[in-house]
């Protein structure tokens, strides 16, 4: 037993050096070659930077909106609603989001509202929406910006992120990048 304890302590010290120092430092060293030196990918706008993987809160009519967030896009925390499918309080919240969306987008038919626009993401920081969710907002953005809907339509098409290798996974739009491109259009 005593022998095991001494070996246990010595081996732990050896492995602490291996796994808490050598391993992370080697990964860190290689990550210096990664986008933005491993500090998180960024995009530039108006002399500011934003993290392209971290969603931002868009509420103004002139921007395309992202998904609802249970933590208001607080990226110093992250979180979801964790509401169950049968929870009536939750279903009322979803109904409320649908009503608000229809109010702000009076030309849109209810059946055309994609579900990702009225349900909260898992991280509360989802940077993406589906292509349909971007297109359903065209009329509103067009009215506030006075840009033709054809132009907005092709702007969205230009910002579509296709499935990985063309065959794996969903098609989507990065809301922050789309809105930056929108600002640059004016």
């Amino acid at each position: 037993m005593k022998n095991n304890l001494i070996i246990g302590i010595r081996m732990t010290v050896v492995l602490l050096v291996l796994f808490m120092v050598i391993y992370p430092l080697s990964v860190w060293a290689v990550a210096q070659l990664a986008p933005n030196n491993g500090k998180g990918e960024v995009v530039v706008y108006k002399q500011n930077i934003g993290y392209s993987n971290i969603g931002q809160n868009f509420t103004a009519d002139k921007y395309f909106w992202g998904r609802p967030s249970a933590v208001d896009y607080n990226a110093a925390g992250s979180g979801a609603s964790n509401k169950g499918a049968s929870n009536e309080e939750y279903l009322a919240v979803v109904q409320g989001r649908i009503d608000t969306f229809l109010l702000k987008n009076p030309t849109v038919k209810k059946l055309d509202i994609p579900i990702d626009l009225v349900t909260a993401s898992a991280s509360g920081l989802d940077p993406n929406i589906s292509v349909a969710s971007a297109k359903v907002q065209i009329t509103r953005v067009q009215k506030t910006r006075k840009i033709s809907s054809e132009k907005l339509n092709s702007l969205i098409d230009a910002n579509i992120e296709h499935p990985f290798l063309g065959i794996f996974g969903p098609t989507k739009v990065n809301v922050l990048k789309l809105n930056i491109a929108l600002d640059q259009l004016n």
């Binding site: 998904r67 979801a80 609603s81 964790n82 509401k83 499918a85 049968s86 939750y90 279903l91 979803v94 109904q95 649908i98 209810k110 059946l111 055309d112 509202i113 994609p114 579900i115 990702d116 009225v118 349900t119 909260a120 993401s121 898992a122 991280s123 989802d126 940077p127 993406n128 929406i129 589906s130 349909a132 996974g169 969903p170 989507k172």
Partner: peptide, 28 residues
């Protein structure tokens, strides 16, 4: 997707998106 949300009459073709991320999708 969630039948209770389907009943509200919106487009639920993406599946049950509550607590899910767009880049991953319902299947994965």
């Amino acid at each position: 997707g969630n039948p209770m949300i389907q009943k509200m009459g919106i487009d639920t073709s993406l599946g049950a998106m509550e607590g899910k991320e767009s880049r991953i999708g319902a299947a994965a």
